[in-house]
Structures are given as C-alpha cells and as structure tokens.
C-alpha cells in the first residue's frame, strides 16, 4: 500500500516535470521571443533588441535558461511578468484564489447533486423521471459553456433580473464578495460536468445492480433500502471516483471560457489576457499551474479510490 502511494507520487512528480519542459519548449519554438513581443514589431531590431535580450538573459543557450527557470520554480519563484513588470506570483495568487472559490462552489454543490441524481435515475431506470433527467443531461453535455453562459445571463440577469449579468468585483475583493458573485458562473461550470458524472454514476449503478451479491442480499431478506445503502452504493460509486477527479480537473478548461464570459477575475481570464498581451513568462507560469492542478486532482482521486477500496487497501493474508 505505502509502496503504491509512493509510486503514484513519484509518477505525479515526473508528470509535472514533463509538463514544465513541454511548456518551456512550446514557448521556445514559437516565432519571436519575449523581447520581440514586448518591444513590438517595429522597435524590435538592432541594439534595442540585443540590449533587451541581454537584460532578460535571452541570449543564453535554451538548456541553460530552462535549468535556470526550473531552479527558480523549485524555489517558488515564478519569474517576472513583462507587461505588468511585477513578480508573477503576486499577480497569479489572488486570481488563483478567486478561481478556486468559483471551482469549489461549483464542485461542492455539483458533485453531490450529480451523484445523487445519478443514483436516483438509475434506480428508476427507464421510467419517466430517468428519461427526462437523462435527456436534459445529454443536452447540457452537448452545449458549449459560452452558450449556456449567454442563456443564463439572458434568463436570470436580463429577464428575471435576479442577479447581475457580469461580475464587477475586483480581483482583490474579499472572498465573501466574490462568493456572492459566483452563482451564475458556477452553475454554468457545473451544468456540463454534472451531466458527465450523472451519466457515469447511472451506468455504474445499473451495472452493479445486476451483480450476484445484490441478488444474494435480496435472498438474505435484506430490505431494499438497506441493499442500496450497504451493498449497491459503495460498490457502484467506487469505480467512478477517479473519473470524477478527472472531470473536475477538466473543469479548468471550462474556467477559461466561463470567467471570460462573466468577467470573473480569476486565473482563466488572466490566461486569456496574458495570451492577448503576448506576456510569455506569465503564459508559461499559468500553463504550468494548470498542469499542476490537473495532476494533483487526478492524484487525489486515485488515492481516495485506493483508500476506499478494500481490495487495494488490504493485502491478501
């Protein structure tokens, strides 16, 4: 068990390193560099360009720069934003917090709802409730986030006037202010992945319901509710945990669109702005953070699934 955890942790670290290298190479092979981006096409020539490159150390060989960047990263130094001329850590931190508030709100409300609905639907398989919910889930899955965002703004902000259409809070607003600004973006984010998790839980519960041990419990005279609670659910939810982790990590790609649509001051919108500004060090740092979140989400889900599965938790005696 301990060996297994260590191995998974090791693999996660290697993945992060690979991600960092790929991000570095990606920025490297793009035409131009930080200086040409910063100076603009007309000014970026001759001595000006050379001076800029000398100042930023861009004239050193790529391997040396990569190692240097990695060394800085290892010490928690993300570098300096060119456009904003400030340390990246200071720019990213508050916005990352905001995104986490949004993502947590979406996950905490959405995951239990998705699992609960999935189970309910599976137990009423092929009856009207199942058919309606499953169809709605399918529609929600196929709609892109920006369409859902536009629809929600139209309905709740413009027609009903229940909330503001866009978020006006600044990036450094108190957490509570931001939390009150999250409902529409969070619902937009949640709709898509709720549908994913719901459908997966539904099919897992249906599969498990056909298992011999469910029939056995019935033959023991166990009441149906207790069969569902003790025999069915633990076995049906277990295989979905890693996929739920993956879905949540994947939710990050939705963050980029949703934050832009609602003007939410998170890391997703920062990413879009950084790309628009050609602020390469910042893009590099944000991409790495996304990779890190992705890897840790899947790692947490795997370890959780391992901890809850007696077959992985205990050794054959």
């Amino acid at each position: 068990m301990l060996g297994l955890i260590l191995r998974r942790l090791g693999a996660a670290w290697i993945t992060v390193v690979v991600v960092a290298v790929v991000v570095f190479i990606g920025v490297e092979v793009m035409p131009g560099d930080a200086c040409t981006a910063m100076l603009g096409r007309d000014a970026a020539r001759g001595d000006v360009l050379e001076n800029c490159r000398d100042r930023m150390g861009l004239n050193r060989p790529p391997v040396e720069r990569c190692v240097g960047w990695a060394g800085d990263l290892a010490q928690g130094d993300l570098g300096v934003s060119m456009k904003r001329d400030r340390p990246i850590a200071g720019i990213v931190a508050p916005r990352l917090r905001n995104t986490l508030i949004l993502a947590l709100a979406a996950a905490l409300a959405g995951v239990p709802l998705a699992i609960g609905l999935g189970v309910m639907v599976a137990l009423r398989r092929e009856r009207p409730f199942d058919i309606i919910v499953s169809t709605v889930a399918l529609v929600a899955m196929t709609m892109p986030e920006f369409v859902i965002a536009a629809l929600l703004i139209l309905i709740f902000a413009i027609w009903l006037g229940w909330s503001a259409g866009v978020v006006t809070a600044a990036y450094d607003a108190p957490a509570l202010t931001l939390l009150f600004a999250t409902p529409l973006p969070a619902v937009t984010l949640a709709l898509v992945y709720i549908a994913h998790i719901l459908r997966m839980v539904r099919s897992s519960v249906i599969d498990t319901a056909g298992a011999d041990y469910i029939l056995m419990a019935r033959m023991k005279g166990v009441p149906e509710r207790q069969i569902v609670r003790r025999h069915l659910l633990p076995n049906a939810i277990l295989p979905t945990i890693p996929v739920i982790g993956l879905t949540l990590a994947w939710l990050l790609s939705g963050v980029v669109i949703v934050e832009s649509a609602f003007n939410y001051p998170g890391i997703g919108r920062l990413a879009v702005n950084a790309v628009a500004d050609r602020d390469l060090p910042l893009v590099q740092a944000i991409t790495l953070i996304f990779g890190l979140i992705y890897v840790s989400m899947t790692l947490i889900a795997d370890l959780l699934a391992m901890a809850l599965n007696p077959r992985l938790r205990t050794r054959r005696l």
Binding site: D212, Y213, M216, A217, M219, G221, V222, H231, N235, R311
Partner: peptide
C-alpha cells in the same frame, strides 16, 4: 416475502466469489 427469504428459505449461491459484497 422479504421475511420469508433468509429466515424460512435460504440460498447457498452458485459462486460465493461473486455473491459476497466486495466492500463489506
């Protein structure tokens, strides 16, 4: 029917490997 099952009539299943709940 539920009270009858397990109490008056009980079953030894075909394959205990499949018939025991793995998480309990």
């Amino acid at each position: 029917l539920r009270r009858l099952r397990g109490q008056s009539v009980a079953m030894v299943p075909q394959s205990a490997v499949m018939a025991l709940t793995p998480t309990m």
